[in-house]
Design a protein around this nucleic acid. Structure first.
Length: 296
DNA sequence: AGTCGAGCCTGCTGGC
DNA sequence: TGCCAGCAGGCTCGAC
């Protein structure tokens, strides 16, 4: 359930651990995650060098040399555990590791064995994550990447883009902001937080905020700012650590302490002087948290 | 075409 | 204490 700030944090952690190194071997402990691994997945990765690790929306992309892209999505509960190279590893034969007391972890689905002796393991209890391979030259045509909207931290997200995207839509602001075809990378937490900062109700119809009035334009500009601010602050804090999420190096993000509405049902609104109580409603089968007093 | 609900999985929490 | 319903950061598919 990592959203953009968490995926960005993981990408940076994985970059430190994997970029410039060669994958010696890949162990697959099951044939699928959410989807089956592509044909020859492990074989095609073995021997490849990871030139660069980056993020697109909530996807992790590893550029391989001599070619190809390893595409990974963390789903709801995916995370990476990095085990640095160390002398202890070599001294314990593989067939004795069980006897040394290391508990078997049924959720370590994929292990990347790097040429420096380190191991990067992918854990995902709920298995909503997935991995795939893409062609370097046709990245934008990959079924998972094709159709993704703009990056919320890029210049493409601005008032006029959002106005065009929202115009005429009968759907709620909440649903439209979660739509990855419009803005790619926002999830439930940061949409709730951004709407709070912008003072906009999640129940507003998107089309109503895209009208050509001074008030609507001001709301739209405020929303763009709120989205950028909340994401940037979350990235700076290393993401939000809830339940299953941790950064790739095992460190925990701290932005969950900065939530103003998410998971704060029944608590006081944090806006100074506001007597509002945070409310939870369900929209499109997802929880929305907001302050009825200051979000209109 | 746009919108909504169900489903994929496992694990944790809160209420009885 | 124990059990079970409800809920979880995402995404896709099918039905209207």
């Amino acid at each position: 359930m990592p959203e953009l700030p968490e995926v960005e944090t993981v990408a940076r952690g994985l970059s430190r651990a994997m970029a410039g190194r060669i994958i010696e071997q890949v162990t697959l402990n099951r044939p699928d995650l959410r989807f089956p691994f592509p044909q020859g997945f492990a074989q095609r990765l073995a021997g490849a060098k990871i030139a660069r690790m980056r993020r697109r929306a909530k996807y992790l992309l590893a550029d391989l040399e001599p070619g190809g892209i390893l595409l990974m999505h963390l789903g709801m509960s995916g995370r990476f555990d990095i085990k640095a190279a160390g002398p202890a590893k070599a001294s314990v034969p593989a067939d004795r590791q069980g006897a040394t007391g290391a508990p078997h972890d049924p959720h370590r689905h994929v292990v990347f064995h790097m040429d420096d002796g380190s191991e990067i393991a992918y854990r995902d209890p709920r298995r909503f994550g997935f991995m795939d391979l893409a062609d370097s030259e046709h990245e934008a045509d990959h079924p998972r990447l094709r159709g993704l909207g703009v990056e919320p931290l890029g210049n493409a997200l601005n008032e006029s883009y959002l106005s065009n995207a929202f115009r005429g839509k009968q759907t709620s602001l909440k649903a439209v902001l979660l739509d990855q075809r419009i803005i790619a990378g926002l999830g439930n937490i940061y949409v709730c937080e951004a709407l709070f900062r912008a003072g906009l109700s999640p129940r507003l119809k998107a089309g109503a905020v895209a009208r050509n009035s001074t008030r609507a334009r001001k709301a739209m500009a405020g929303l763009v700012t709120a989205i950028r601010d909340v994401l940037n602050e979350a990235i700076a804090a290393g993401g939000s650590s809830l339940r299953d999420y941790a950064g790739a190096d095992g460190t925990l993000g701290t932005f969950q302490h900065g939530f103003e509405v998410y998971d704060r049902t029944g608590k006081r609104c944090l806006r100074p002087g506001c007597p509002g109580i945070i409310k939870r409603i369900v929209q499109n089968n997802r929880s929305s948290f907001f302050c009825p007093k200051c979000q209109h």
